[in-house]
Design a protein around this nucleic acid. Structure first.
Lengths: 227, 227
DNA sequence: AAAGGACGTTTCAATAAGTGAAATATACGG
DNA sequence: CCGTATATTTCACTTATTGAAACGTCCTTT
């Protein structure tokens, strides 16, 4: 039992993830999606339903339950990084008019948007908190995986998402990068020089995000003890 | 197998809930909290950790993981009721200066705040999305459990929470009440007449919340099919 | 320093508990 | 009216979960 793990629970969690990703899944779809037999999927989904993690709609399809919303909101509230980053995101939007994001590495080789602020241009990049983003081929990914950022920031034009240019910088209190701050711009609107200007803004915000008292608060958040 | 349910999964979900409620739990605390043996709790927590639902901080304590945040944010985004209610919440705050909430019944005989808008008074009721509230002895509870609301709204002074008066009205597209709209006011500030005035505002917003095109959208949301 | 206690972790045999194929019922579409 | 797909139940098989016990460590106490 060197690397322990409970198959039943893993399956149930995969099932939960599938339902949340799809927004709505029928039993058969869920079973296919997760490679489970219908009877097993049914049993697990019923358990998830009994605990409020999924619910059934009028047609019998499974949807994310309120427990998910509730726990998610609680967890997000406990993320002090988010509240620390919000002013920075706001300043970035103020000074660029473009959408700005805070992201962190997730568990499966992807990243997640933890907080965002929409840009003010009528044509702007739109995404949402909780969205996962690949780390390969993205500016955020380059930053989160610790690629040496020449000028303190990374610019990726038309990476995973076509038509947009992403500019990201690492949030690193000390040696380790814990998050990325990024601004995403429709590519047609941005010049090389402008990207550089925004890059410096992002890098500066990212650099000052976790200093002194901020770092103390984060340490407390990560350790559960006053720093 | 009349009422099926998998013990392992149930236990893991309870454990997840305990970690999210506490914000941070050590293994021993988690095991005590959930009446599990330390070895079982450890095994389940490891499974949750491996899937990103919990993570360990620097001291080894368990905290809600990013997967929870992610799924929660996704689920909240799929709740079209929330976006429909937001304008109503905003109007209520505009006209009363008090905090306003949208809540729905949860699975375990409680309710959950799904959306909120903070009041503008410097002394105001403060809560958060995802918070669960008892149904017994609360205005929201009375409305959600379908108590006949005399004037279309319910006022509860100093109910479960001391010093505050809650005013709630049912959101009922058709016969069934699916949600409650409420305004919560510090009791010292409100008179009988004022409560009545606010009650009518809340009742009116609640009544018009799911009409015509709104109702069609909600039906679609609940059934997964165009109405 | 030694003793005591609490915690995290691993091991392992007992068996409780999860599994999936198959059968049934119902609904849908041609 | 038949063929197909889905949701659900049943049941024998055995796999996978379980919890007591033992161990190492790190504190606090005496």
């Amino acid at each position: 039992m060197a690397e322990s793990s409970t198959r039943t629970v893993e399956r149930a969690l995969v099932l939960l993830g599938a339902v949340c990703d799809a927004g709505s899944l029928t039993l058969a779809d869920a079973a296919r999606e997760t490679d489970l037999s219908a009877s097993t999927a049914l049993r697990l989904l019923r358990t998830l339903e009994g605990t409020g993690f999924v619910r059934r709609d009028a047609l019998g399809a499974y949807r994310p339950g309120l427990r998910v919303v509730q726990l998610g909101a609680q967890a997000l509230g406990h993320e002090s990084l988010v509240s620390l980053a919000e002013p920075a995101l706001e300043r970035l939007v103020d000074r660029t008019g473009e959408s700005a994001y805070l992201s962190v590495p997730s568990h499966d080789g992807e990243g997640v948007y933890l907080a965002m602020r929409e840009g003010t241009h009528s044509v702007r990049h739109a995404s949402w908190v909780g969205r996962s983003i690949p780390l390969a081929g993205t500016a955020v990914g380059a930053v989160l995986t610790g690629s040496p950022a020449a000028d303190g920031f990374v610019v990726v034009r038309d990476g995973v998402e076509a038509d947009v240019t992403a500019i990201a910088a690492p949030v690193s209190p000390g040696a380790r990068t814990v998050a990325a701050l990024s601004v995403v711009v429709p590519s047609y609107r941005i010049t090389e020089a402008e990207a550089h200007r925004i890059g410096e803004l992002v890098a500066q915000e990212a650099a000052t995000l976790l200093t002194r008292q901020d770092a103390a608060a984060l340490t407390e958040d990560l350790t559960g003890e006053p720093a």
